[in-house]
C-alpha cells in the first residue's frame, strides 16, 4: 500500500529562456489557472530560493491562495510547470506525495484536528513513515516525545499538551498548525495569512519565530498585515490579478505607484 514513487524529471534544459538558478527550491513557470473563464492565475512566473523567506502581498482575490493550491496539488494548473528542488515536477504528484517531498502548508483558515489533543496533533504531523502498515504498529517512543516537546516550546503551547485542540483560542490554533508544519520538517513552508486573528503580542512572537527559522528553511508567507511584513524584513512580491505586479523590499514596493493604485482602487 504505497503511493507511486516520486517522479523525477531530469534537467531543466527545456527552460532555456529562464536563467538557470541553481539554488532555487521552487520554480513556477507560466502558470495559468482559470475557473469558468475567470483567470485566477495569469501566466505567473516566480522563483523561490533555498532557505529564503519571501512575503507575498496583494489585494483580496489576487490569486495568492490559488498559487498555494497549485503548488500543493490541490488545484491543477491549466498550463505551466512547477518544479521543486529543480528536478521534481509537482504537477504529476498527488497532495500527499507533494507533502512528503518536503512542502508544508498552512491554510488560510486554521485547520487542525479539533477532536485530538495538542499532543496527538503534533504526533500525527511528525515526519515518519506515513503508510497504513506503519500506523498500525506505531508506538509513541522517546524520540517522538522529545521532538514534540521541543516543538511545543517553540509554539508556546507547553501547558496545553493534553488539551483538546478544539478548545484552543484562534491564535493558539494558528500556532498549533505552524507547529504541525515544523514537525513535518519540510524544506519549504507555505504560510497563508499565518497571523490573521492573532493579538498584536501573538503576532510579534510569530514574527520572531519566523525570523528564527530564516536561513534554516525556505518560507513563503502570504500576509496582509504590513507591520508583520515589516518585521520579517524580507523581499516582497506583489501579486495582482494572477500575476506579479512588482517585487522588491517593502519600502520600494510601497512607493511603487502601480501598487498604490491597486491598493487604493482606481
Amino acid at each position: 500500500m504505497s503511493d507511486t514513487s516520486v517522479n523525477m524529471a531530469h534537467g531543466m534544459g527545456e527552460n532555456l529562456s529562464e536563467p538557470i538558478k541553481n539554488n532555487s527550491i521552487l520554480q513556477l513557470s507560466n502558470i495559468t489557472v482559470s475557473f469558468d473563464g475567470f483567470r485566477a492565475l495569469n501566466d505567473l512566473t516566480l522563483t523561490f530560493q533555498v532557505n529564503e523567506l519571501r512575503c507575498i502581498i496583494g489585494p483580496n482575490g489576487a490569486g495568492k491562495t490559488t498559487m498555494m493550491d497549485v503548488i500543493t496539488g490541490k488545484t491543477r494548473a491549466d498550463s505551466g510547470t512547477v518544479f521543486f528542488n529543480q528536478t521534481i515536477d509537482l504537477s504529476n504528484l498527488s497532495e500527499p506525495e507533494i507533502a512528503r517531498v518536503g512542502i508544508g502548508r498552512k491554510f488560510q483558515k486554521p485547520t487542525i484536528f479539533e477532536n485530538h489533543t495538542v499532543f496527538e496533533n503534533l504526533e500525527l504531523a511528525m515526519k515518519v513513515d506515513k503508510r497504513v502498515r506503519h500506523s498500525l504498529f506505531a508506538v509513541v517512543d522517546d524520540l517522538t516525545r522529545d521532538r514534540i516537546s521541543d516543538t511545543l516550546r517553540l509554539i508556546h503551547l507547553g501547558e496545553h499538551t493534553e488539551q483538546v485542540a478544539g478548545r484552543l483560542s484562534h491564535g493558539q490554533k494558528q500556532w498549533l498548525e505552524i507547529g504541525m508544519l515544523l514537525m513535518q520538517e519540510p524544506q519549504l513552508l507555505l504560510l497563508d495569512e499565518p497571523v490573521a486573528g492573532m493579538t498584536d503580542d501573538e503576532t510579534e512572537r510569530t514574527g520572531e519565530l519566523f525570523n528564527s527559522l530564516k536561513g534554516k528553511q525556505s518560507l513563503v508567507v502570504v500576509e496582509h498585515d504590513m507591520a508583520f511584513v515589516e518585521q520579517l524584513k524580507s523581499n516582497v512580491i506583489v501579486l495582482h490579478e494572477g500575476s506579479v505586479l512588482c517585487e522588491g523590499d517593502l519600502a520600494t514596493v510601497q512607493a511603487n505607484p502601480k501598487v498604490i493604485e491597486v491598493y487604493l482602487g482606481r
Binding site: 500543493t72 498527488s94 507533502a99 491554510f107 506515513k130 504541525m180
Partner: peptide
C-alpha cells in the same frame, strides 16, 4: 485536507 497535506494518503 489537513491529513493529506501532512503526507498521508
Amino acid at each position: 485536507m489537513r491529513v493529506m497535506f501532512l503526507g498521508y494518503n
